[in-house]
Computed example of a mutant assay.
Amino acid sequence: MAVLDTGAPYPILDPAIAKAIGFSSELAIERISILVRGKKLEGSLIRLNITLVAVRGQNLTVDATTFVPDSEFAWDNFPCFIGLAGFLERIRFAIDPNTDTFYFASL
């Protein structure tokens, strides 16, 4: 589960999930700081395949530039985020606010 946030600069992965899938700081493309809900977080940008799971139709896997915060403590139980740069800009998407439905397809 993730929050769709078109204002987020990148998808943001919970550090505990990153750790569980084998993230290592050696995989970092770049080190950056970003503001998440008023907190400045230090972390790494990595390349990661993210799959959107379809209720109907086909799943979609996107090679995404993703931010992983350094500290699980600083993460403060935030949800993961799907951001515009590095992810949503690489797919076609639409949102139906009446039904909270997220539609997606490859470009």
Rank of each mutant, 00 (worst) to 15 (best):
Y10S: 12
P11H: 11
L13A: 07
A16E: 12
A16Q: 12
I17K: 14
K19Q: 09
K19G: 01
G22E: 11
G22Q: 12
S24Y: 06
S25D: 05
E26Q: 14
E26P: 00
A28M: 08
S33W: 05
I34C: 07
I34G: 03
L35W: 07
V36Y: 05
V36G: 02
V36C: 04
R37N: 11
G38L: 08
K39F: 07
E42M: 10
E42H: 11
E42L: 13
G43M: 08
S44R: 04
I46A: 05
R47A: 01
R47K: 10
L48Q: 04
I50P: 00
I50T: 02
I50Q: 05
T51D: 02
L52Q: 04
L52V: 03
L52H: 04
A54Y: 06
A54R: 09
V55N: 04
V55W: 02
R56S: 05
R56E: 07
R56F: 03
G57Q: 04
G57S: 02
Q58E: 06
Q58G: 01
N59R: 05
L60I: 04
L60K: 05
T61M: 06
V62Y: 02
V62D: 01
D63Q: 10
D63A: 11
T65L: 14
T65Q: 12
T66K: 08
T66Q: 05
V68G: 02
D70G: 03
D70C: 05
S71M: 08
S71I: 05
E72P: 00
F73I: 10
F73Y: 06
A74G: 01
W75E: 05
F78N: 15
F78K: 10
P79Q: 15
P79M: 15
F81S: 02
G83H: 06
L84P: 00
L84W: 12
L84A: 11
L84G: 01
A85D: 10
A85F: 11
A85Q: 14
A85R: 15
A85E: 11
G86S: 07
F87H: 09
F87W: 08
L88Y: 12
E89P: 00
R90E: 04
A94M: 14
A94I: 06
I95N: 04
I95C: 07
I95W: 14
T99D: 08
D100V: 07
T101N: 07
T101K: 15
F102D: 04
Y103V: 08
F104P: 02
A105Q: 15
